[in-house]
Design a protein around this nucleic acid. Structure first.
Lengths: 240, 240
DNA sequence: CCTTTCAGGCTGTCTAGACAACTGCAGTTG
DNA sequence: CAACTGCAGTTGTCTAGACAGCCTGAAAGG
């Protein structure tokens, strides 16, 4: 089964074998994998060599390891990042109207430097932060924080909870038309918390948009930071 | 120095110590770190424990390890991804006029399915592929492949080599104005080759834009796939 | 002077063994 | 019945040693 002569490290060969078994369905999503000592006997190598392979599989998001219990196949398996990427396209102009929006949290808080600068208010001024998650086909695809100056929109939380949409909420406050002043798009690795919110492994990158919406007079009405699961979302920029 | 009682693994403590030394400048960018055996003596732990810490530092992009030579502090240190991100903003409408463009390769090749579809030509038709890299302040920030239908632009390579700019090259062929039909933005982990071209660790994500440029008549004149080092580039979308 | 060889230093891999820490479960105890 | 105890199974960490493969620079040879 394994070759000690062809230059490829044993742990890598084991990695590929287990990866193949996971992606081909020999091990099904959620199923418990053989324990390290079982793999040790199966492949006739040292436990540390198995651990090296398992570590790589964990890093690559194929398996999930729980101390004292064992290793399990991650569900869903992210294997072909490009081809498995759904055609879910996030039109920037409609970013906040994605279906399946879940309100996670809504609190009043003090604006930090970044938020204050974006909304053109003073640092420490009270803003309303609305944290929500977007889902498509039951899959968590986005996690966003939106900041609104409270002086402009008192009691926005209740309204937002009622309407479930930024557009309609702002409309309730008389802001019938708002436009995107600018959008900054970056990409980085998620923190453990962010990966958890997006239901994705920590080893997959996230796409982030930071946007400022302004009303007709140019007054900032919303500052939004939206994280997207890059395995499932692509951003489409079309001429307006 | 190290505590074997406080619950934090030794390798993690060593990781934090070296990380602090790297970010605080005790070890400067590019500088060679002590060898594994030197660290072994310094921390009075086994070499494998050092290796665990070094592995994590490598994964996190703080150091770069070269077999047979040693470990070096990565330059620049990627520590505060957001704040260290340069203000290099890539205006999409001027994407191809970035300064410091390096022509890497230019060949005629057959269009595959994706290229053919984008340029609205038949699969297998000959296109010119121009591979180039963008640099800013001497730092590799982008790596792109551009495809041009050869029937429209015969001998484009020589012209491009002369001008070094897509805009001016197309202008030479009479295409004075071209506009972006659409841009798709995705993010994923780079392959080993892509990471090499971008001079970045394999563990940092890349931002990718896939764009189609059309002339006044709507005929596709260029299909470009551009990879950006996400640690150094942000994409700025502004209303046109 | 230039080229080749080679020894020493370095990282990469593999093996072997030990103990800690956690989980789940069965059995015991109150 | 509920809570505790202990044990077996599992993963996490650390140590120890060996050898392979790569790199550098100095010595030997032309």
């Amino acid at each position: 089964m394994l070759s000690r002569k062809n230059g490829m490290p044993l742990w890598r060969q084991i990695y590929l074998k287990i990866e193949a078994d996971v992606t081909s369905g020999v091990f099904e999503p959620g199923q418990k994998l053989p324990s390290e000592s079982e793999f040790t006997n199966l492949f006739s190598v040292n436990r540390h060599t198995i651990r090296r392979a398992m570590g790589a599989l964990t890093d690559d998001g194929l398996v999930r390891v729980e101390r004292g219990r064992g290793a399990f196949v991650r569900e869903p398996v992210i294997n072909y990042p490009v081809s498995s990427r759904t055609r879910f396209s996030e039109n920037l102009t409609r970013q906040h109207r994605a279906p399946g929006n879940v309100l996670l949290m809504a609190v009043d808080t003090e604006a930090d430097v970044a938020v204050a600068e974006a909304l053109d208010i003073k640092e420490g001024e009270i803003v309303t932060r609305i944290t929500s998650a977007g889902e498509a086909d039951g899959r968590r695809v986005s996690y966003s924080n939106s900041f609104f100056p409270r002086t402009l929109f008192p009691g926005i939380v209740r309204i937002f909870r009622e309407f479930g949409s930024v557009t309609r909420t702002l409309s309730h406050f008389g802001v019938d038309d708002y436009s995107r002043k600018r959008t900054r798009i970056i990409s980085r690795m998620p923190t453990k918390e962010e990966a958890g919110e997006l239901h994705q492994p920590k080893s997959r990158p996230v796409l982030i948009t930071e946007s400022i919406n302004v009303d007709e007079t140019g007054t900032p009405v919303e500052f939004g930071i939206c994280l997207f699961a890059s395995d499932w979302v692509q951003i489409l920029v079309e001429p307006s």
